[in-house]
Simulated assay, not measured.
Amino acid sequence: MEPLPERRSIRYAGYDYDMAGYYSLTLCAQGKAHLFGMLPPDAPLQLSALGETVVAELLALADHYPTIRLDTWVLMPNHVHLLLALTHNRAVSVSQLVGSFKSRCYQEWRRALLAAGHTAPPSCWQRNYYERIIRSPGELEAQRHYILDNPSRWNTM
């Protein structure tokens, strides 16, 4: 039997993702489906049940990980952008935080689906996530603007 090919990592080779600093993350819904809600023109996101769970879990991140600070975030119909700061070295890694967050969101959503007599898909999240290491105050400010302006660009895509 042939060994499976190694998965290509999208992480920055050699970087230690449990070091204090700012990180910009994008997590996508499975298949980029609009699972988190609907975004009508010139109106805020109308959250689905899963969208409500994602927001609640975002707001609870610092409760689960006291050494992080959620800076800026926006939930879109099929993805979430967040800018967070790890405030202490080696207290938690970005991948640990993302994995735990995705798991809590999915488990809560799955529990609600099953309680309502529905079947639950195997996941609500796309495998992996996108990250950007923030390296300067200018880049930090640019990421904040990008995240906050994301809804206004949605209907022009």
Rank of each mutant, 00 (worst) to 15 (best):
M1G: 08
M1A: 01
P5S: 03
I10K: 15
R11V: 12
R11G: 02
R11F: 12
G14P: 11
D16F: 09
G21C: 03
Y22F: 15
Y23R: 00
Y23H: 02
S24E: 12
T26W: 01
L27V: 11
C28K: 04
G31C: 04
H34A: 15
F36L: 07
L39F: 08
L39C: 11
P40R: 09
P40L: 12
P41L: 10
D42T: 10
A43T: 13
A43P: 08
Q46C: 04
L47P: 00
A49P: 15
A49F: 08
L50A: 13
L50G: 06
G51P: 02
G51D: 07
E52Q: 14
E52V: 01
E52P: 01
T53V: 13
T53W: 02
V55H: 13
E57Q: 13
L61T: 10
L61R: 08
L61N: 09
A62L: 04
A62R: 09
D63Q: 11
Y65L: 01
P66K: 02
R69D: 03
D71H: 08
W73H: 14
L75V: 15
M76S: 07
M76L: 15
M76N: 05
M76K: 03
P77H: 07
H79C: 08
V80K: 06
L82F: 05
L84C: 08
A85V: 15
L86C: 00
T87W: 12
N89C: 03
A91I: 06
A91H: 04
L97G: 07
K102L: 02
K102H: 02
K102E: 01
S103A: 14
R104G: 14
E108C: 09
R110D: 07
L114V: 04
A116F: 01
P121F: 06
Q126R: 05
R127C: 08
R127V: 05
Y130D: 12
I133E: 04
S136Y: 06
P137K: 10
E139N: 11
R144E: 07
H145I: 00
Y146I: 09
Y146C: 03
I147E: 10
N150H: 11
N150K: 07
P151T: 02
W154E: 13
N155M: 08
M157W: 12
